[in-house]
Design a protein around this nucleic acid. Structure first.
Lengths: 134, 134
DNA sequence: CTCGATATGTGATGTTATTACATTAGTCAA
DNA sequence: TTGACTAATGTAATAACATCACATATCGAG
């Protein structure tokens, strides 16, 4: 992960769009929201996302093909552990958390099996507390 | 998860294709391999996959949009725990494993946060032992 | 047999992501 | 300043993944 730096115009636009959103957005949703700012093609979004992912400012949710602004932007906090996401299928809210034991157990398996991990995805889908009680 | 039963023609064709493959296949790759058996449209594959997933005979790898036959078909073994997948980005081989501690830690989080999980994805991407030493 | 449920066939369409190529803007050294 | 290099951008086309809508067929229960 490259360290963050001054964002370019397109990167800022995409990042601000994700930050303002109250849940994950698809690349094409971002595109639509940025048409007024001159965006015309998917690639403008995907290229910005690629950098933002690289800087650790944005996460990709593989199970729903969507992107969210990182919930822990400042200290790039638990960045040494794996990040897990709980995604509510009712309201779309995403909770981000990190668990050292899980990280450790995954590392244990990869070590035992000679597997060099580059990226790990942990995504829990279901219904959040708010939606569950409603 | 519904319990497995006699598979229909299309379901068998799709399942056999996945079983013979030495790695995950995309829906469209399956389609291409089954053209000789009369398959003409993606939906024929997706419909069969849907059932096979439901029966627990096949897994979907969210991070690569592909499907694999379950590696533990007989006892539907660790089916109470979450299944993790290690996917080699060099050779495509997938290792399937289950870890009680991870399952427990995830359940801990969901319990603490009132989140009702329906499906959990754990996918480790990287390079397997074989490819790493080569 | 007839009804209902499940499975299938087929075309069109929707959604997500990348390729290819041209252009623009910034940096740095000679 | 010029030239050369690198990063960022613009645009069209296409590839890859998935679903909708509607018609037809198959099969078991009553």
């Amino acid at each position: 992960m490259t360290t963050a730096q001054e964002l370019t115009k397109n990167q800022s636009l995409v990042f601000n769009t994700l930050s303002r959103a109250d849940g994950p957005l698809s690349a094409y949703t971002i595109l639509d929201q940025l048409r007024g700012d001159g965006f015309r093609a998917p690639l403008q979004v995907y290229r910005a996302l690629e950098k933002l992912l690289d800087y650790g400012m944005v996460h990709r949710l593989e199970s729903i093909n969507a992107f969210v602004a990182c919930a822990h932007p400042h200290h790039h906090g638990h960045s040494h552990g794996m990040i897990a996401f709980a995604i509510c299928e009712k309201c779309g809210q995403v909770s981000e958390f990190s668990d050292d034991i899980i990280t450790q157990r995954v590392r244990q398996w990869t070590t035992d099996n000679g597997f060099k991990q580059t990226k790990t995805t942990i995504e829990i889908r279901g219904v959040c507390a708010n939606c569950g009680t409603a």
